[in-house]
Each structure stands twice: as C-alpha cells, then as structure tokens.
Design a protein around this nucleic acid. Structure first.
Length: 268
DNA sequence: CGTGCCGGGGT
DNA sequence: ACCCCGGCACG
C-alpha cells in the first residue's frame, strides 16, 4: 500500500468512519502516520446508509484474501497526494495547555480566560464593588488562582461547560484524530507493515482516548483496542430498560428495548 | 447465566 | 412502518 511512499515512513494508519444521525451518508476520516507526523484526510461517501461499513469502503479499499487491508489500486496513486497536498485536517497544536483563571470564592467555580475578567467577576459579584468601575485595590487577587486547562479536552461541544477543576482535564491525546461529535463511529486499524514494531499509538491508544461523560447529547465513543484484528466497541455499562424496569414492567421499556434493538433511552 | 442487541424474519 | 425473536457476544 501507499505507492510512492517509502514503506518505512508509514508507521500507522487509522480509518475513522463517522455516521451522523441527521444526514445520509458517511464520512471517512483517514489518518496516516508518516515519519511520526499524523496527517488526516476526510472523504464523504454519499449513500451507504443501507450498506455496512465494509461494503461502503469497498470502493476505496480492498481486502485481500489474507485478511490484510490494502489500498485499492485506482486510489493508490492519489493517496499520497490526498494526504500530502490536499487540505489536511488541521493538526492540533502541540502545547494545548492554556492558562485560565479560576474563582476561589466558596461555591463559585467560575473560570475565565483573562485575569482582568476574573478580577471584574470577583469585584462585582463577590465583593460588591461598583460594576462600572475598573478600579481595583488588589483584594481580588486573593480570590482567584491560575490554572492550566487542557484545551484538547474542552472541545467545541463542551465549550459551554465550566471546567470544575484542572484535574478534570484529560491527558493530551497522543494522535490527532479529533474524536469529537461522533454519535456513532467505528475504528478500523489498517496494518501497514508487519515488520515494524508496534507504534506508540497501538501500545497506548486505549488509555489516552478520553472518555467524556456529560448529560449533553455530545458524547465521545470509548473504543478499546483489543488485538491486531482491529477495534471493537466495548459493551455499554449503562443500565438499560430491561435492568431498570425489569421484565414485569416491560411496557415501560423504550420501543427499541422491547424489540431487542439498541436502547434509545439509556444510550452509552 | 443475565443482558444487550444484531440480523433476519413476519405482518 | 411496526413488531418479534434466534442467536451470539460479553460480563
């Protein structure tokens, strides 16, 4: 695979399929690690809704009889051009830690991005000073502290949330695929070259994928890397209708549970 | 063994 | 579209 690219350059390769519930079709996000640099590329498949992801992929990828995935010959020549020269998915900046200012007032968890902002917050809300004056006697300094917030864990979907403490920040992800706003996704790991030792990614991917649980619809799928065969979606831990209501109250189950389909009420 | 749910039916 | 269930994976 990857014609035109020295094989030893290619360290790892990830395909992320993304189905969005509100639209037909599927987005293929491909990430290839070339010389320790992750490069991403997006491609949309228009109407695979009735197909499985394997069928949907067959246009771009092929699976040899040995079970190893390979790049379709017609795409091979374009592959590197796609990754190297077309608009790549912007890579995350290396240092994603940002200094924020957190209010230390009791029962107040306000976090603002500027010191003047947090000073004004403390001055007006907690110290009852004049709100339209920027005059400060310095007392506010006692009521806030600087914290470092990992911006990688505060993705767009979570931007409305107030970080509760710096310790809630996830460790920085080790590779760039932005696992954000993925209602339903599957990972396929392509084995580029068996002769290479396992990359950093394959050794540590599961522990570095942040699992962000919120009450919002926004969720990040937590995917476990199990074997060389690929990624597998772990079993949900949430109590579903059957467990919650019991067999005797089956009429209270959501329809999906009644039909032995994936629960709609208690989504993982 | 209980549970979750995919795939494949039936109406 | 709605409903049911065999069978399987997984804890």
């Amino acid at each position: 695979m990857l014609l035109g690219c020295p094989e030893y350059w290619v360290l790892d390769f990830i395909i992320l399929l993304q189905r969005k519930s509100d639209q037909a079709g599927m987005i293929i996000k491909s990430y290839v690690c070339i010389k320790h640099h992750w490069i991403g590329h997006e491609k949309q498949i228009p109407e695979p809704t009735t197909k499985t992801w394997k069928e949907a992929l067959s246009g771009s990828y092929s699976s040899s009889t040995s079970g190893n995935w390979s790049w379709d010959a017609s795409d091979q020549s374009n592959f590197l051009a796609h990754f190297m020269f077309e608009d790549p998915i912007p890579r995350k900046r290396k240092n994603s830690m940002k200094v924020m200012f957190k209010c230390l007032w009791k029962n107040c968890e306000k976090v603002l991005s500027t010191s003047s902002g947090i000073q004004r917050h403390i001055r007006t809300l907690h110290l009852g000073r004049n709100s339209d004056s920027d005059y400060s006697d310095g007392e506010e300094d006692f009521y806030y502290s600087e914290i470092e917030v990992n911006m990688d864990s505060l993705t767009e979907g979570l931007s409305s949330l107030t970080p509760t403490s710096p310790t809630t920040a996830c460790p920085p992800p080790i590779f760039p695929p932005p696992l954000t706003e993925v209602p339903h996704s599957e990972h396929i790991r392509m084995n580029g070259s068996q002769s290479h030792p396992p990359t950093l990614l394959s050794q540590s991917a599961p522990s570095t994928l942040c699992h962000i649980r919120t009450d919002h619809a926004y969720q990040v799928q937590h995917l476990n890397y199990l074997s060389e065969e690929g990624w597998k979606k772990p079993r949900g831990e949430a109590k579903k209708c059957r467990k919650v209501y019991g067999m005797e109250k089956r009429d209270m189950w959501c329809t999906a549970c009644r039909w032995k389909k994936a629960c709609q009420r208690f989504i993982d």
